[in-house]
């Protein structure tokens, strides 16, 4: 290994000697060398970027999923009312089908509404055989004596999800507008796995596609977290869960605890304040031409892994920076030494 390193070092010294004019000072030569190497790294990262990951953690009064994988979207609840007919069901098992929207909304302390818009299969102790529904509303409550549940309800948050709502009028006058109370989006990168397309980075200090935290962004209350997209602009599936404490005394402002992650490069966020700008973001690039003509105030904010965070945060790149800096400094020292000898 050390022999290879020495040979590489000699080659770098030779290149630098040939390419950099002799009349340049040592410090300028060093700066040029570093700039050249950073440019090369920039190109390397641009061409070999492994898929990043985005996570969301927060509290919201409303969350919505569109089912893309029925098995991962299925859930069970110990007790629930059917909103139509006020019928109490126990040991309820729900399996939504592909494309079915599932909405979780906190109605108040100890009251959770679950809505299925689309086809789903419902099973319970009270039903003789599984029931196929096209639209169903369940209320899980700790208030009703005959059908109450006081523990935690944990529900899947998988598929294509939306968290929060824009401030809009409610349907009924007594209803409040459910909002996202607070949220945090973390963008994780994955370290590069190859250097210059063919040198695998899974030896020594290097670790291929290792997860590292690149950015953390707090989402303002009242936002709507929307689509997660891959590098080509296609919607990406989220994986996570929603949890609600049915206890009446647990919180002053009850809300769902949400946690989900997606192997996505960007996520759209409609912040309460509209965006002002005219440049297409990573969230719109893959969505077709028409979006480029849409005023930015209509479009969401885009949270994505940017190149600077990747260049600064990738652990493999940090090792390469260190090695390169040592190599360049060593090469310049050697050159300086030879110049001093020549002067003497």
């Amino acid at each position: 290994m050390s022999i290879d390193l020495y040979a590489t070092l000699k080659r770098v010294v030779a290149i630098l000697r040939d390419k950099i004019p002799r009349r340049l000072s040592v410090s300028r030569r060093l700066a040029l060398s570093i700039l050249f190497l950073i440019g090369a790294l920039f190109a390397v990262v641009s061409f070999t970027s492994p898929q990043p990951m985005i996570t969301f953690t927060g509290r919201s009064e409303i969350a919505e999923t569109m089912t893309t994988l029925p098995d991962s979207a299925a859930f069970s609840i110990p007790y629930a009312f059917l909103a139509e007919g006020n019928r109490c069901l126990s040991k309820v098992h729900v399996r939504p089908r592909n494309g079915t929207r599932v909405i979780y909304e906190v109605l108040g302390p100890g009251e959770l509404l679950i809505v299925l818009v689309g086809s789903a299969t419902v099973q319970s102790e009270e039903l003789d055989e599984p029931l196929t529904v096209d639209f169903q509303r369940f209320i899980v409550s700790s208030r009703e004596q005959s059908c109450s549940y006081q523990g935690y309800v944990r529900l899947p948050l998988t598929g294509l999800i939306q968290i929060g709502e824009e401030p809009a009028n409610s349907l009924g006058y007594g209803d409040k507008n459910p909002i996202l109370r607070h949220g945090r989006i973390q963008v994780f990168g994955r370290s590069i796995s190859r250097l210059l397309f063919f040198i695998p980075l899974n030896w020594g200090p290097f670790d291929a596609e290792a997860l590292y935290l690149a950015e953390t962004i707090d989402v303002p209350a009242g936002s709507r977290v929307s689509r997660a997209l891959d590098e080509e602009g296609n919607p990406v599936r989220w994986w996570g869960f929603a949890e609600f404490n049915m206890s009446l005394t647990s919180e002053e402002a009850p809300s769902l605890f949400l946690s989900a992650s997606a192997n996505a490069g960007a996520v759209s966020v409609f912040a309460p304040a509209p965006r002002r700008g005219s440049v297409l973001t990573a969230c719109q690039r893959g969505s077709g031409e028409s979006v480029s003509e849409t005023p930015s105030s209509l479009l969401p904010e885009c949270i994505s892994l940017d190149l600077s965070a990747q260049l600064a945060g990738d652990p493999n790149l940090r090792w390469i920076y260190g090695a390169l800096i040592v190599m360049v400094a060593f090469a310049n020292l050697l050159h300086l030494r030879s110049e001093i000898k020549t002067d003497r």
Binding site: E166, S226, R227, F270, P274, L299, P300
Partner: peptide, 10 residues
Amino acid sequence: QRDERTIAFD
């Protein structure tokens, strides 16, 4: 359509 900001109508 909810791909855009929907305040006044959706």
